[in-house]
């Protein structure tokens, strides 16, 4: 018998690095996905560096230095809002909140969706059926009204907003994961694992989940886009956290003070453009990832 210089752990690490490298090489060949990633990276950087880029004092209504709805100037590159705050400062800090809520909501949605989808696909008996019915039930409830009702019941805080969006948006993910699970469940390698003595937990964690995960991952980026849009919508409808500034609450403010009619475009356009850009880049990255992980979509 030959002894090997490699331990199992080293082998695992080498394999993972190899897989990552390959995925990245594949991703790089999608130009649109790369553009999305760069734009996204910019926004995340801005959100992370918000305290450096703009003084948080600029968010305070009482300490505002500008006039009401001033147009862009050297001091306020994007003008001021109805309270005399710099729109640029609001925008930078708003990126934090919007991205945070978007990502947290997505995480909640993904966890619920993946768990429900995986179990409802994997267990054929009554647990699976009940979960599937539950998914369908949530799916037919119109998303926005559900979010509205939940938001008004739970109260207006940042965490609640994320929770609301997460709870309202998981059924789509669950259905996707369920269909993937059903198809993977029929693969011969699951039979092989069963013959080797694998139980349900092993089958799920070692065979189904790793093969579903790339799908989940690609889907995540698409869900983030929806979550950010929903956060914007809820804030715009006045259900956001009143103590924080997000792109959605900016749009809400702008709308209430009639920025549209008074021609204060600098108050409306920047947050709107930011939302569109972030959503678009998440979608581009998501689509590229989906093609990377799902070879059937790959064009030859």
């Amino acid at each position: 018998m030959t002894t090997t210089p490699l331990s199992a752990r080293q082998i695992g690490r080498r394999r993972r690095n190899e897989a990552l490298r390959r995925t990245w090489a594949e991703f790089r060949s999608h130009r649109s996905g790369l553009v999305g990633l760069v734009v996204l990276g910019g926004f995340i950087l801005v959100a992370l560096l918000a305290p450096v880029l703009a003084d948080s004092d600029g968010l305070s209504v009482t300490r505002a230095t500008g006039g009401v709805l001033e147009g862009p100037s050297a001091e306020f590159p994007l003008g001021t809002d109805d309270n005399g705050r710099s729109v640029l400062t609001l925008l930078i800090w708003g990126a934090r909140i919007s991205l945070f809520v978007g990502l947290l909501a997505t995480a909640i949605s993904m966890v619920i969706g993946t768990l429900v989808g995986l179990t409802s696909g994997f267990f054929e008996g009554w647990p699976g059926r009940i979960l599937f019915r539950l998914t369908e039930w949530f799916l037919v409830i119109p998303f926005l009204p559900l979010a509205l009702v939940l938001a008004s019941v739970l109260g207006r805080s940042l965490l609640n907003i994320a929770l609301v969006i997460g709870v309202a948006s998981w059924p789509g993910t669950a259905l996707l994961i369920r269909s993937q699970t059903l198809s993977i469940k029929e693969r011969p390698y699951l039979d092989r694992a069963r013959v080797l003595g694998a139980g349900r937990w092993h089958l799920m964690s070692r065979h189904v989940l790793p093969n579903v995960m790339p799908m989940v991952f690609a889907n995540t980026t698409l869900t983030v886009a929806i979550a950010i849009l929903t956060e914007t919508t809820l804030s715009f409808l006045g259900l956001g956290d009143p103590t924080r500034v997000s792109w959605g609450s900016m749009l809400d403010d702008a709308f209430t003070v009639g920025a549209m009619t008074t021609g204060a475009w600098w108050f409306i356009v920047p947050p709107g453009v930011c939302v569109v850009l972030v959503v678009l880049s998440f979608t581009l990255v998501g689509q590229a990832l989906e093609e990377v992980v799902n070879p059937r979509l790959r064009r030859r």
Binding site: R187, Y189, D191, R192, N211
Partner: peptide
């Protein structure tokens, strides 16, 4: 088909 494509 009997080998998991994601396993070495």
């Amino acid at each position: 088909g009997s080998l998991n494509p994601r396993q070495t």
